[in-house]
Design a protein around this nucleic acid. Sequence first.
DNA 1: ATAAGATATCTCGACGTCGAGAAAAGATTC
DNA 2: GAATCTTTTCTCGACGTCGAGATATCTTAT
Lengths: 161, 161
Amino acid sequence: MTDLEKIPAPRLWLVLARAFHSVAAYIEGSVTAQGLGLSDFMVLEVLLHKGPLTISVIGEKVLLASASMTSAIDRLERHGLVRRRSCSSDRRIRLVELTEDGKIFIEETYARHEKDLERVTEGLSDVERRVMYEGLKKVGLAAKVAVPTERCKSLDGVQNG
Amino acid sequence: MTDLEKIPAPRLWLVLARAFHSVAAYIEGSVTAQGLGLSDFMVLEVLLHKGPLTISVIGEKVLLASASMTSAIDRLERHGLVRRRSCSSDRRIRLVELTEDGKIFIEETYARHEKDLERVTEGLSDVERRVMYEGLKKVGLAAKVAVPTERCKSLDGVQNG
DNA sequence: ATAAGATATCTCGACGTCGAGAAAAGATTC
DNA sequence: GAATCTTTTCTCGACGTCGAGATATCTTAT
């Protein structure tokens, strides 16, 4: 099975994308409650592990834009899982914190989530995990740093709309 | 190297998700033309490398649902990059193929895309690539097979592949 | 104190995606 | 041939996400 060929970048990207999709779908199925999606779960998880945070800080951690964060927190607040608290020292800020219900929900859900993730990665040796971890970090960082790429003139005459 | 601890599954998932997001954003920036997104690009890429295909087959390859495929092909057709062709042997089917413009566009874009991907993964050794590739395949497959978690009823047992 | 700039959040409109279901054509069974 | 599934694509409505811009507040320079 061990091809000694070098894995081409597009192939690596393909399996990365597929793995992400499959795991995301898997997690979503196990973690989602009515009206809550993966992003909402991630917000709750951050709050569970880091305590109350501002909306923009949460957004950085779960990779959501500010507009998306507003609706995510709206959603969670509507379900009674989080609460917005104003801050007297900086009145622009809204500190978001878990309610009692939210804490109970995310603690239970996260425990299941953790087990599910372990199940899906149990086929990996310690070395594989380490290599994948370092490698993914490397790639992610390179992509983040390199974000601006030149875009050319394609599709000029084809505008429509 | 620094740490000999076993990487916990949630941490692995975290870097996987971040790497995916960063690379997807990176690619999108380099590949996207006006009115076209990453999915559209992936559709064109499949057509370039596999030739004309039906809408549902493309959908399987680029991980898009049928409703999404309809609008993706509409979009590409509106831009004059692909064409729907009817099939006389099975009149349910719509064969999608690249137009001349589409072929030119995707050939040029894919070449750039490939270089961009290589740039982002050039920090990885051959061994790292191999381990990541095999590991990601393993995880992706495990997640796909395991999709149903408790809240889902299982009426089919194990489906291989 | 005032003005100018930065920051945090929210609103609005647009887009991509999806599930459910409809419509049309093929396949199977009687 | 007729009834019944199955497959393929499309339509519709709902949802999550985002960029751009609005608003309120804090910060800094003058």
